[in-house]
Amino acid sequence: MNIFRLTGDLTHLMSIIVLLLKIHTIKSCAGISLKTQELYALVFATRYLDIFTTYISLYNTVMKLIFLGTSFSIVWYMRRHKTVRLSYDKNNDTFRHYFLVLPCFLLALVLNNRFTVREVLWTFSLYLEAVAIIPQLVLLQRSKNVDNLTGNYVFFLGAYRGFYLINWIYRYFTENHYRRWITWMAGIVQTALYVDFFYYYFKSWKNNEKLKLPA
């Protein structure tokens, strides 16, 4: 494992910690898209089907369990917790799941490495992860001011994508037969979605202003 991959995993973990911090300490999920969180839960559930059958490393198994556990508990908090759910911005979080889920599933049926249930679902999870942030970005755009924790949450998620991209470039040059066109394709789309957000994030940071995305 290289340093870029590790940094990517840690920023991914940081994004989840920031989100849980918001939910646990402020008891608020304002500005967080439940649609995106549900899509992430679906992403992890379909990607980590091999968690108990294929052993890679203790690190790998533990991280998978953390991502699965946290993503489903975040969804639970936003839907069921007696105070957290009241802060959910339901009226602005209107993006439809199936607009993303259906095309990703159809694409995974056609573009995959092998036509098996596990391989198709794994490919589906990559395609879905690439676009799962869209409802969150839409919600950010509709929010007048984005609070710090929400802004940092999306920032860490974007940083995770950036580091994974560098990791693939690194692996491409250091490992033989490292051909991963599905990962590359989905990863580039996913990282590109953050470019706009990063521009406004750094601009607000530089000018010491509250983050606000233009509608």
């Binding site: 991914h12 294929t54 790998n60 991280m63 998978k64 490495n113 092998r114 051909r179 991963r180 599905i182």
Partner: peptide
Amino acid sequence: ADTEETKDEL
């Protein structure tokens, strides 16, 4: 399994 991608990432 030549075309199968390595699944060591998260």
